[in-house]
Design a protein around this nucleic acid. Structure first.
Length: 490
RNA sequence: GACUUGGUAGCUCAGCUGGUAGAGCAUUACACUUUUAAUGUAAGGGUCCUGGGUUCGAAUCCCAGCCAGGUCACCA
C-alpha cells in the first residue's frame, strides 16, 4: 500500500504540474453508456457515430506504440479502448491526450471520460478508438486488480471483513454484491407500490422516543441536553402508528429503521429495517390473504416469475400459504401435548426432556414455548407457513379470539426457517392493554398510548415485516450482512 | 456468552516437525506498431494482528489479548 500509494501520489503531482486538474468540476457530456453501445454496436459502426462515455479503468495493456484500456461503467459492462502512436502526429491531439496516454499517467481505477469512434479490431473485438480523453478522478489507493489469465482468476476480493468494511471496493469488484443491493432496492420499491395501491399513507414517526415501546428488547440510550433527560432510539414504531390510526388515517405504513442493543449475528444487526403497516376495519384473517398477494406480487415484479430457489428448495409464491396452530406444530415436531391452559409447572415438567435452558429468573411460559419452538420447529419450516393461535400471554398487543379468550388473533409467517412477519388484530381495549403492559414490562409503560386507546382505536390489523430477512431470503443469502450495505462492526 | 477456524506484500494465498520471509496478479523500468484480461527481461515492495514466554534462534511452539468468519446459545 505504502509503496503504490506513494507512486500514485507522485503521478498526481506531475499531472497537476502539467496543467491537468485530476479532480475537475466540469461535467463532460455523454451520449451513450457501455450497455447501450454493446446493444447497438452494429448500428454505431454503420452510422459512424461519435461516442462519449464515462467509466472506470479496469486494466491497461501497453505495447510499444499502441495500447488497450478496458473500462467499466455503472451498467457493469466493460468495453475496450484503443490508442496508437499514429494519432500523435495529428494536429487534433490535445495536450491532455498526450500527457495522460503517452506519459502513462493513467492507472487501474482511474475514472475517465472519452470520446471516440467504435471499430472492430483484427481479433474482432468491438473497441473505441480514443479521440479525446479527460481525467475525471484519479485513483490513489490501488484497487485489487481484475484479471483472468491462463484460466486463473485474479479478481478475488473475498475477505469478508475487508468487504464489509470497504463496501465501496466490494461493490466495485463483485457483481453479485451489487446485484443483491439492486434487488433490495427493487423489492422495497415494489412493496411501496403495493401499499400505495391500497391507498395507505406513508408516514414518519419518531426515532428518538421518550419510552421505548412496541417490543421487548434492550434499547440504545441517548441524552438530550436541553431537556436534561434520556431518550431512546426506537426498538419499534408500532405504538406510534396505532396513534395515527386513532387519529383517523384509514391505513398507514412506515419503513422503520429500528435499533436494538443486543448481540450481532447472521440474523441480527443492531439497526435493521422493519416495514410496519396498519389498516383499520380489517382483521388478521384478511391480512393473511393480503400477505399472500403481497409476496406473489413482489416476487413476480422483481424476478418476473413466481418460483424462486432458496437454499435448494424451490418456493412457489403463487401457491396458497398453509396455516398451522402453534401448539400443533409443537406437537408435530416434539410430540409434546401442551396448550394455552397448560400451567407453568406442567410446562416445565413436560419440556424437561427437551433440554430447554432457561435462566431461573426468566422462567415464564412464553419463554419456554418460544424456546421449544425455536429449537425444534423453526428450522424445519421450509415453505411459507402461517403459524396461528398464539396464547395471550405471548402476545401483549394482540386481540383475544372471540371463541377462546386465552388465544389471540395473531399469525407469524415463517419461510426457510426464519421469521419474516408478525401480525395481529390489534388490541384496542385500553384497560386490557394497560394490564398486559404491566405484566410484560413495568419499567416502560407508554401511558400516552393508553390514552390514545381511550379515545378509541377502530378495529385494526397490523403487521411487521422484517425487510432485511425478507431480502436475504429473496437473494438467497444466509447472512444479513450481505444485504445490509454497511453492517455494524467493531 | 461458549466452542471452533483464521489474521503473512495492494489482492488471493503458500510457508512441513523452529534456522536469513515466498508465488501469481498488481506496481516500477526497459523492449515489442491491434493485444485477448498480451509477451519477454529486470527491479522495488513486509511491524508475518498485538504483547509476553520458551529457545542460541519464533511467521512457525506456549500464554494472554484484539479483530473477523462459522456453529450454538441469548435476543427477535
Amino acid at each position: 500500500m505504502y509503496e503504490q500509494e506513494k507512486i500514485r501520489k507522485k503521478k498526481l503531482i506531475k499531472i497537476k504540474l502539467l496543467g491537468i486538474n485530476p479532480y475537475p468540476s466540469k461535467i463532460y457530456k455523454t451520449n451513450y453508456n457501455i450497455k447501450k453501445i454493446l446493444i447497438n454496436k452494429k448500428k454505431i459502426i454503420k452510422n459512424n457515430i461519435n461516442l462519449s462515455i464515462n467509466g472506470r479503468i479496469l486494466s491497461i495493456r501497453n505495447m510499444s506504440k499502441s495500447s488497450f484500456i478496458d473500462i467499466k461503467d455503472y451498467t457493469d459492462n466493460k468495453i475496450q479502448l484503443f490508442y496508437n502512436i499514429k494519432n500523435i502526429n495529428k494536429k487534433l491531439i490535445n495536450k491532455e491526450y498526450y500527457i495522460l496516454l503517452f506519459k502513462k499517467y493513467l492507472d487501474i481505477g482511474d475514472i475517465i471520460w472519452i470520446n471516440g469512434k467504435l471499430f472492430l479490431t483484427k481479433v474482432k473485438e468491438y473497441t473505441i478508438l480514443i479521440n479525446k480523453i479527460k481525467l475525471l478522478s484519479k485513483c490513489i489507493y490501488p484497487i485489487p486488480n481484475i484479471k483472468i489469465k491462463k484460466n486463473k482468476i485474479y479478481k478475488k476480493f473475498k475477505n469478508k471483513e475487508k468487504r464489509y468494511r470497504m463496501r465501496y471496493i466490494d461493490l466495485l469488484l463483485n457483481k453479485k454484491v451489487k446485484k443483491n443491493f439492486l434487488i433490495r432496492s427493487l423489492i422495497i420499491k415494489y412493496l411501496r407500490n403495493f401499499l400505495n395501491k391500497l391507498n395507505l399513507i406513508e408516514v414518519d414517526t419518531p426515532i428518538l422516543q421518550n419510552i421505548p415501546g412496541g417490543a421487548n428488547a434492550k434499547p440504545f440510550i441517548t441524552y438530550h441536553n436541553k431537556f436534561k433527560k434520556y431518550l431512546y432510539l426506537r426498538i419499534s414504531n408500532e405504538l406510534y402508528l396505532k396513534r395515527l390510526i386513532v387519529g383517523g388515517f384509514k391505513g398507514v405504513y412506515e419503513f422503520s429503521r429500528n435499533f436494538r442493543n443486543e448481540s450481532i449475528d447472521k440474523n441480527h444487526n443492531p439497526e435493521f429495517t422493519i416495514l410496519e403497516f396498519y389498516i383499520s376495519y380489517k382483521n388478521y384473517i384478511w391480512m393473511m390473504k393480503l400477505i399472500e398477494k403481497l409476496l406473489k406480487y413482489i416476487c413476480k415484479k422483481t424476478f418476473n416469475k413466481y418460483k424462486i430457489k432458496i437454499n435448494n428448495n424451490i418456493i412457489d409464491f403463487s401457491k396458497k400459504i398453509k396455516k398451522i396452530k402453534l401448539f400443533n406444530i409443537i406437537k408435530k415436531y416434539t410430540n409434546l401435548n401442551i396448550n394455552e391452559n397448560t400451567s407453568l409447572k406442567e410446562l416445565i415438567k413436560k419440556s424437561k426432556k427437551l433440554k430447554i435452558n432457561i435462566k431461573e429468573n426468566e422462567n415464564t411460559k412464553e419463554k419456554i414455548i418460544d424456546n421449544i419452538f425455536n429449537k425444534y420447529c423453526k428450522k424445519k419450516i421450509k415453505k411459507p407457513l402461517f403459524i396461528i393461535d398464539y396464547p395471550k400471554y405471548m402476545s401483549p398487543l394482540a386481540k383475544s379470539k372471540i371463541k377462546n379468550k386465552k388465544l389471540t388473533e395473531r399469525f407469524e409467517l415463517y419461510i426457510n426457517g426464519k421469521e419474516i412477519a408478525n401480525a395481529y388484530t390489534e388490541l384496542n381495549d385500553p384497560y386490557d392493554q394497560f394490564k398486559r403492559f404491566k405484566k410484560q414490562n413495568k419499567k416502560f409503560i407508554d401511558k400516552d398510548f393508553i390514552k390514545s386507546l381511550k379515545i378509541g382505536m377502530p378495529p385494526t390489523v397490523g403487521i411487521g415485516i422484517g425487510i432485511d430477512r425478507l431480502i436475504a431470503l429473496f437473494t438467497n443469502n444466509n447472512n444479513i450482512q450481505e444485504i445490509i450495505l454497511f453492517p455494524q462492526m467493531k
